[in-house]
Amino acid sequence: MLAAIVATSAAALLAAPTAGILGHRALKRSRNASLMKIDSPNGIDERSFVRIGGIDQWISVRGEDLANPVVLELHGGPGASTAIFGPRTRSWEKHFTIVRWDMRGTLKTLGHNGADGQGEMTFDRIYADAIEVTDHIRTRLGVDKVVLLGLSYGSAFGLRLARAFPEHYSAYVGTDQNIHDSGRDNSVHEALLARLRATKKHKELAAVEALDTDKHRWTTRERAMHAKLLATTDPLTLDTMKKVVMGSLWLSPLHSLRELGHFAKGMSFSEQVTAGTSGFDDWADGTEFKIPFFLFQGEKDVLTSPDLARRFFDDVQAPVKDFALIDDCSHFAAFRRPERFLELMLAHVRPVIVADESAAAGI
């Protein structure tokens, strides 16, 4: 959804590398690599390609104690790997085993196989991959269930997996939660028009006003253009994209300079997947979940409306549910304020999971 701004930022970074900038980057990456070391007796740090859906897909498994609950992240974008945030979320790994997966069309999976080696790039194909990744992780780590963490576009997969396979997931957590309502809610679009009018961006305003009133008829490029403007017209979101997203990619010890380009290319390449969700209706698909259900949303998110997320949450029926806003955050709230997100996970999610595991074990 944000491929254009990511591509622009990545191009600027790649165009700028002088000896001083590269030296600063090398120092920061070295420090981040030291920060990310896991040497606890029962810890795990595995990074490898796994055969999923007929192609090699990159999966990382990290945590300080394998006895901790396992969290499977479903990244957004589509095509926006969360592995770049490793140093920012290092504290999460003290309490959870974090699984990060570059979906087909994304960063390391894209770079390893090439664009022609990604296979079918559809929502249904990646959904099937997610089922396979879940089974792989459950087998590899010897656990019955994992926490499902849906981030932004990844939350569209997350809701459907949580509904369909409650036996595989101990809880669902959504952040930057996408709620699809078949186009009924128009508040995000209207807010964009208001920002464009207020800032007198006449060219961009004309492009948005020219879009079909039926969102289902938008092309992939029109959806991408709309998402780019949502982000770039909001100062908080734009600041987060530059400092948190691109800053994390630039200083990631797991990613080379070449992979900065793969990140941007992956988001552009993966835009085609969004065609598969344009007609989704989460209310029609069902608001009953058989597992604990949590939404932690940025209070100022201009891409995935916290009000719409709250309305859906209010209709959800689940054994346990909770909703919280993350203050002073727009999109990418979990990564802009990773310690606050961890506090919410520890206060609301982990106790429920641990209690359920103890009950299942007869303790």
Rank of each mutant, 00 (worst) to 15 (best):
A4S: 13
A10Q: 03
A19C: 00
G20C: 03
G20M: 05
I21Y: 06
R25W: 07
L27M: 10
R29D: 07
L35R: 15
I38Y: 11
N42C: 07
G43E: 11
S48F: 13
D65T: 03
L66T: 09
L72C: 02
G79Q: 06
R90Q: 12
S91P: 00
E93I: 03
W101H: 02
W101N: 02
D102C: 06
M103E: 13
Q118P: 08
E120N: 08
D124T: 11
D144E: 14
K145P: 00
S152T: 01
Y153E: 00
Y153C: 01
A156S: 10
G174D: 12
D176H: 05
D181C: 04
S182D: 14
G183V: 02
H189N: 09
E190H: 10
A194Q: 12
A194D: 11
R197K: 15
A206S: 09
V208Q: 03
D212G: 04
L229G: 01
L230N: 05
L238D: 08
K242V: 06
M246S: 01
R258N: 10
G266H: 02
M267Y: 02
T274A: 11
A275H: 04
A275R: 12
T277N: 04
D281H: 12
T287F: 01
E288N: 12
P292L: 14
L295C: 13
G298M: 07
T304A: 03
T304Q: 04
S305W: 03
S305A: 07
D307N: 10
V316F: 12
Q317A: 14
V320M: 05
L325E: 12
R337V: 01
R340F: 00
P351T: 08
V352Q: 15
